[in-house]
Design a protein around this nucleic acid. Structure first.
Lengths: 130, 130
DNA sequence: GGAAGTACCGACCTTTGGGTAAGCTGCTCA
DNA sequence: TGAGCAGCTTACCCAAAGGTCGGTACTTCC
């Protein structure tokens, strides 16, 4: 935002922006943020149930990272049984669009890619001479 | 593209679109495709040199996957020393925009995220009572 | 004749990702 | 009395990711 920001470059080794890029492109992160995209509070169990195959451990870990990075907020209600609500922060909202586009791309081009893989399996093997 | 495509859903376990999402969000894939974004042919060594810290093994593997998925083409010139050129396919071009947006986000928000991490390290630790 | 360049491939080994399972809290309901 | 709830945490373990190193083929340059 300021003019004094270092020239972040994901192509540079150990640049924080590369690290960040890895995190936001993460397997579970993309799905979790997508689920929180409506900016309404979500509870642990509802996110877990929505994302098929995620373990509680990975969900916890992913949520912690997102909170640490300031992308989501975590609100604990001191009730019994405990209630915790997660929701996008304003910083998280800025990431909503980019990730939505990515998910949409993967949905709308899955067929093309599957076709390409078949084609590759059939013809691409001339790489190995008979 | 066609009306008969299965209803791909990355939130479903073992859906090809989830698999695809993981691949395109991959650590090296994002950078490699970014480097090829100008649609001009690129050689192995030039890509390797541009992406600091990538090993030749990972570059080879990433390029193979991209070729397999139909996102890049691989042109071999039977010369000595060998010359191989990689370039985006038309399918690959459709992914250029989404990934560019993602890279730009990580560059322009790295500062914010670093600040959030510091804040979290300082205040977020009331999670552990003294 | 030895070194260097190109784009790999394969073996080996370490690091990380990620799964399972158990435990914990403090109240409530049977 | 004790089971069950929500949202974890911790320990343990295996498999996959990914780095390092060595080799290849053929030629050109020194």
């Amino acid at each position: 935002m300021t003019a004094t920001d270092p020239p972040w470059d994901p192509y540079a080794r150990e640049c924080p922006s590369r690290d960040l890029l890895n995190r936001i492109g993460d397997k579970w992160t993309v799905l979790v943020l997508g689920e929180l995209a409506d900016q309404r509070p979500h509870r642990f169990a509802s996110i877990r149930d929505r994302i098929e195959g995620i373990s509680e451990k990975m969900l916890t870990q992913t949520l912690r990272h997102l909170e640490e990075d300031g992308l989501i907020s975590r609100q604990v209600y001191p009730e019994v049984p405990p209630r915790v609500e997660y929701q996008l922060t304003s910083l998280g909202v800025t990431l909503r669009g980019p990730l939505a586009v990515l998910r949409e791309w993967s949905v709308s081009h899955a067929t093309d890619v599957l076709a390409a893989r078949e084609e590759y399996a059939r013809t691409g093997l001339r790489r190995c001479p008979s």
